[in-house]
Structures are given as structure tokens and as C-alpha cells.
């Protein structure tokens, strides 16, 4: 069972990691050559004006005061204001986050529902045409850059065939569900689906290929174990042997990989959002980079690091639930 002590220890680990990341981000900002004053003032600004801006931003304080202020801000959820947009960074991120999270979850779901059965089929039909087909598909999947895949999908599916819009989000998932529940109108849902399907496939393909490969190799390993032979000898139906026993044990490494790939999903979503003009956090950060809007970049990096740590915390907990033999000490 998951011991409370382990959870506490793991939690402290997480806090340490986030603190490290936050500090790293602070250091990055201070060694970066561009001064925010240049972003906020015209090149012709008088020294007095520049001085006033510096004071407003707290840039003339000693570095440790700036660091403590910054830490205090992060702790209270205050990520400062965007240099360019003026709005609070936290608000900007909160507004954009649902679109990105939706996309990441959709991509993961698509990846998993295709990859796991594909991996199992591949393993149970080892060295047969089906296996070769699946292996080739996953090789292509891990070798194709997602932005190009997205463009090709737009070109073929949207432009040539005319299915699905080329860009945008249409409506949010929550709004679509509300429309369905309160107005009995599935239209919102259809719009949502049409908009998200191509970006989600684009983002999920690499992931899908990776998990197919992993499921295949884990399944092959499990199927060679003695307990599988025992199950078969006892006359257990093959699907039960495969899915209840072998697959369950194969899922442990898959769960770990899903956790580690959260980083891929976050990074990958930036590119996919650019390709499909998806109004998520990724597009916000690209804008911020073009405008040297450091406050947004910083806020984004903090958000990403916190998400990564949180997801992996839960992955570790899931791991113990899935595998009773792992006592995390």
C-alpha cells in the first residue's frame, strides 16, 4: 500500500524540484541580455523615464530582494504583469490553459486507445504480417516530425477533401457539454470534435508510436513468463490471460512513460498550436518570445514545471496501486 510517509517524502521531493526550477528560471532572466526596460519604453526614452520604469519593476533593488519578492509572488500565485499586454500573467495563463489541457488529454486518449490494442495485437501475432505492419507504422510514427504531419493532414484532409477546419478551436469542451446538457444541442459537440481531431492526432502520433512499441515489447516479455503458461494450462480463456494478466503487468512501464512524456506533450503542444492556430498557452508563449515579454515566459515555465511535477507525483502513486509488489521505500 502507499504509505503516508512515502507520499510526504515524494511531495517534499516535488517541492524541491519546483523550487530548483523556479530558481533556474530566475537566474536565466538575470543573465539574459535584453532588459525589460527596453521592451517597455521607446528607444528614445529619457533616462528619467527609464529610471522610473526600473523602479516600478523593482529592478534597482538588490538581487536577493528581487529573488525573495519573486519567490513570494510565485507562492501567492502572483506571476507579475505582462510587459506588453499589461494583464496579470496568471490570468493570461488561466484563460489559455483549458485549450492546451484539452488538446493534451485528447492526444493522450487517442494515443492510448490505439496504441495499447495495437501493441497487444502486434505481440500476440509476433513475426506475422500484422506485427510487421504495426511495427512499421510505429517506426514511421516516431520518425515523423509532428508539425509536418499536421501540415500534411491539413493539406490532405482539410484542403483537398474538405473535412474538418484547418485551424482554430471552435468551442471549448465544457461549453460543448453545457450546450448538450442544457439545450439538448449536439452542435457544439460536433464543432468541438471537428476542430480538435486533427491537432489531437498530430500531437498524439509520436506518443502512440512510442506506446505501441513499448506495449509490444513488454507484452512479449510477459507472455514468456511462467505464470502465463500456468494460466493457459489451467484452461483460462486466452483473452482473459492476455488482458487480465499479461497486459496488466505490461502496463507498469507504460504508466511511467506516460508520466515522463508529459514533457513531450507540453513541448509538442507549442508546435501543434502554431500549426493549427490553436488558441492555447503554446501560441501565447510564441507571441511572448517574439515580443521579449519575459514575464509571460517566466510564468509559463513555472506553470510547466509545476504541472510536470504534479503529474509525475500521481504517476508514482498510480504505480504503487497497479503493482502491489512495489513498496516505495
Amino acid at each position: 500500500m502507499v504509505s503516508g510517509r512515502y507520499l510526504v517524502k515524494r511531495f517534499v521531493h516535488g517541492i524541491l524540484v519546483v523550487w530548483g526550477a523556479i530558481t533556474l528560471i530566475f537566474v536565466l532572466r538575470h543573465i539574459s541580455p535584453g532588459s525589460p526596460i527596453n521592451v517597455m519604453t521607446p528607444p528614445t526614452a529619457s533616462p528619467e523615464l527609464r529610471e522610473r520604469v526600473a523602479e516600478e519593476l523593482g529592478l534597482n533593488q538588490p538581487i536577493y530582494v528581487q529573488y525573495l519578492d519573486y519567490l513570494g509572488g510565485v507562492l501567492t500565485g502572483d506571476l507579475g504583469n505582462s510587459y506588453v499586454r499589461g494583464a496579470p500573467v496568471s490570468q493570461l495563463l488561466i484563460d489559455r490553459a483549458p485549450a492546451t489541457i484539452e488538446l493534451a488529454i485528447a492526444a493522450t486518449v487517442i494515443a492510448l486507445i490505439i496504441a495499447i490494442p495495437l501493441g497487444v495485437i502486434s505481440a500476440t501475432n509476433r513475426d506475422e504480417p500484422l506485427d510487421y505492419g504495426a511495427s512499421l507504422a510505429s517506426l514511421l510514427g516516431i520518425s515523423t516530425p509532428n508539425f509536418w504531419l499536421g501540415l500534411m493532414l491539413i493539406m490532405v484532409v482539410s484542403v483537398q477533401i474538405g473535412f474538418f477546419p484547418t485551424s482554430g478551436r471552435g468551442t471549448g469542451f465544457v461549453a460543448a457539454v453545457q450546450l448538450l446538457v442544457f439545450e439538448m444541442d449536439a452542435g457544439g459537440f460536433v464543432t468541438w470534435f471537428q476542430h480538435i481531431i486533427l491537432p489531437a492526432i498530430t500531437l498524439g502520433t509520436y506518443f502512440m508510436a512510442l506506446i505501441t512499441r513499448l506495449t509490444r515489447s513488454e507484452m512479449l516479455e510477459e507472455l514468456e513468463q511462467e505464470y502465463v503458461q500456468v494460466c493457459r494450462a489451467k484452461g483460462l480463456p486466452e483473452p482473459l490471460v492476455l488482458y487480465k494478466h499479461a497486459l496488466r503487468n505490461s502496463m507498469l512501464p507504460v504508466v511511467t512513460v506516460v508520466g515522463l512524456q508529459v514533457g513531450y506533450l507540453i513541448g509538442g503542444s507549442i508546435v501543434v498550436e502554431v500549426v493549427f492556430s490553436w488558441p492555447g498557452v503554446g501560441n501565447l508563449i510564441i507571441d511572448a518570445l517574439t515580443n521579449s515579454d519575459w514575464m509571460i515566459i517566466q510564468g509559463y515555465l513555472i506553470l510547466v514545471s509545476v504541472s510536470w511535477v504534479t503529474v509525475n507525483f500521481f504517476v508514482d502513486v498510480t504505480y504503487t496501486v497497479l503493482d502491489p509488489t512495489v513498496s516505495l521505500e
Binding site: 510517509r5 510526504v8 517524502k9 517534499v12 521531493h13 524541491l16
Partner: peptide, 9 residues
Amino acid sequence: SITDKLLMA
């Protein structure tokens, strides 16, 4: 470990 020391285990 460092964390254990922090937690004073």
C-alpha cells in the same frame, strides 16, 4: 538522503 534529512526521518 537529503530529503530524509529535511524531513528529519
